[in-house]
Amino acid sequence: MSKEAPKGIKAGHSRRAFLRVLAAFTAFASAWKVALFSDQAAAQANLSGLPLPDEPVESTLKRLFSNRPFQSGDGKIKLELPLIAEDGGNVAISVDTNLPVSGVTRANHMYIIADKNRLPMLAKFSFTPESGKAFIATSIRLATTTDVRAIVEMSDGTLYAVSKNVRVTISGCDLPPQS
């Protein structure tokens, strides 16, 4: 008995140590798995068409520009949109700028943001010196009457923004609900 007691304690110790190691390992593995999974999920959400949750425009701006202040782009960016869009599913937009795309401070990215869409960031365009000019024209979908912003991000981090209000008669984003 007295001979076995230390052995038992020893066994207890080793079991405790083993359990501790096991617990640590499990925690590490699950943390790693979670990290991996969330990374994967993010990558999948980025590349696949899985729907993202609705987002207010403030969090979009925070996510993209992390609360950097906007400077007025009047005279630098010309945003052309119809005053009234009869079909929200096809609204012509053109953004023309006289900002340089080459040199030290150049226009890198252009964002089109509609404040009241489900996901406010509609499109992002990246320019290189070979573009010669920062300009884009395309057609977008608007959910409802909203402000549309065109934001140009310069290579030094300066943000120029202009916005324009568009009245939308028929929403371009709503499908009849599925039964």
Binding site: G89, A123, F127, T128, S131, G132, C173
Partner: peptide, 22 residues
């Protein structure tokens, strides 16, 4: 590569893009 665009579902069906090129 001279230009890149990221688009979402908020771009119209059969989209038309006009972009500059030097």
């Amino acid at each position: 590569e001279v230009m890149r665009a990221e688009t979402t579902q908020a771009v119209s069906q059969n989209p038309l893009f006009t972009f500059p090129l030097k």
